[in-house]
Design a protein around this nucleic acid. Structure first.
Lengths: 249, 249
DNA sequence: TATTAAACCGCATAAAACTGCAATTAATGT
DNA sequence: ACATTAATTGCAGTTTTATGCGGTTTAATA
């Protein structure tokens, strides 16, 4: 691997995660820690990032909100969120799922857009409540400790009484054959209820999750009406999904 | 975790709460108190915050006038919250209202305490979900933009189906004669529903709110079972409440 | 004034950064 | 194609930094 490629990779990682550890980078790039150190030193001299003890942080780190700092693959998720926002119209009634991609979607909703948003995520609800023209409704239920979303029979019942134009959902794993799958049984039940409660379902997924599966199944892939990734629709990774009845953005 | 991340987290906490305790930060960040002290010292040297005995305060907090400082009245609210926590037992099922005093209560719940907590506040729910032994349930409903709590017919209906041991509620205004009053009609409806849903109602109120009233009435003063203020029970301000059937802490 | 909690100080330890050097690889000239 | 030179990389040893801990001093509080 060329030095320049390596440095570019380091830069990308920093931009993506807002921070990196030298030890992590050395491992993923399979070079010695000293090499990474020298690379980071150069990049720091070129004002491309800020070198700190033990790692490096992006230049905008201190000005950015910390909440952005720990989102993995922020760039990709922002790209996805922007595409999703293009689907929204004044007066739309939508559901927004939990997860960082959907959180990013909530954040990027423009001020002028008039929406009614349902959600099960505390964080998404908080973001939405800052938007002057968005009516936010949270679905009640027991809050999970990991992802801070409402789950349980009560939440599912509440969802059974609504019908939104679009639901924007994330998933743990997605595969053209196995469909949408999750690690967690409760989450699957919630997502099923969400899909039932929506006229059209939009899946937001970074390419990393494509062609992977896990234990519990949410739905078949053709239950999804639109799939949004950060990739170009012609990308080879999306080929397995091409001949299905899904719009790929 | 990188030092810079840690310091950024500290800064965010300070901005959020206006004031932090070094012990709290040390615990949440899982580092020694000395490390936090050194971090805060550096941040103070960089004029990012002001270091005080036992913690740090945001720069804006000191430059703001007394009125602003008083709005938060963190000292008082912390004192109230601590008294309220004394009422909690393992296995208690409680409701926690919105507002800064109740938020403080949620924050100060000790790690070991096993509770089931209902709330209508996004912020309270978020705090609670960080507690390992607390089961958090959020009541669904439309989120208000100012206080980020769930309101509406749906929320009221959800409350009508539960009965908690204690509800800890705040109020806009409280008076021995006029009872609990609010500026906002919707809030009154919510509080009424909360009181109905609880075996015992505990009012948390800083002394500033004593002997004041407003347009809409939540309930009579003797509907409240316990009133907690930061004052000593013998304080002259509490005299009007003395001969009523209320426990004053 | 006594008591408690926080701040401070110095030290020990572990991790990271630096240094010089040898080995390897890439680039260049003949 | 081959030799020479320059650049890059990894390694061992050293220096620096970050962090936690015990003991002491100082500040807050009752």
């Amino acid at each position: 691997m060329l030095k320049e490629e390596r440095q570019q990779t380091i830069l990308n990682e920093v931009e993506l995660h807002n921070r990196i550890l030298l030890t992590d980078i050395a491992e993923t790039l399979d070079v010695s820690i000293d090499t990474v150190r020298r690379d980071v030193k150069e990049l720091d001299a070129d004002k491309k990032l800020k070198k700190v003890h033990g790692g490096a942080i992006s230049l905008g780190f201190t000005t950015n909100n910390i909440r952005n700092a720990h989102i993995y693959a922020l760039e990709e998720k922002t790209a996805i969120a922007k595409k999703a926002i293009g689907m929204l119209r004044n007066g739309s009634v939508v559901f927004i799922d939990g997860g960082t991609t959907c959180l990013e979607l909530a954040r990027l909703i423009p001020e002028h857009l008039q929406l009614t948003c349902f959600t099960i995520s505390l964080q998404v609800a908080m973001e939405l409540s800052n938007k002057p023209n968005v009516t936010t409704i949270i679905i009640g239920g027991q809050i999970t400790k990991e992802s801070q979303i409402a789950i349980g029979a009560n939440a599912i019942h509440a969802l059974s009484e609504i019908k939104v134009d679009y639901s924007f959902i994330g998933t743990g794993y997605v595969d053209a054959v196995y469909g949408l799958t999750e690690f967690d049984w409760d989450i699957v039940q919630m997502k099923k209820a969400v899909i039932k409660a929506s006229k059209k379902t939009v899946l937001l997924s970074i390419s990393e999750k494509l062609n992977s599966q896990h234990r519990y199944k949410t739905c078949d892939i053709n239950t999804i009406n639109t799939m949004i990734t950060e990739l170009d629709p012609e990308n080879v990774l999306l080929r397995p999904f091409k001949n299905l009845d899904i719009k790929i953005v």
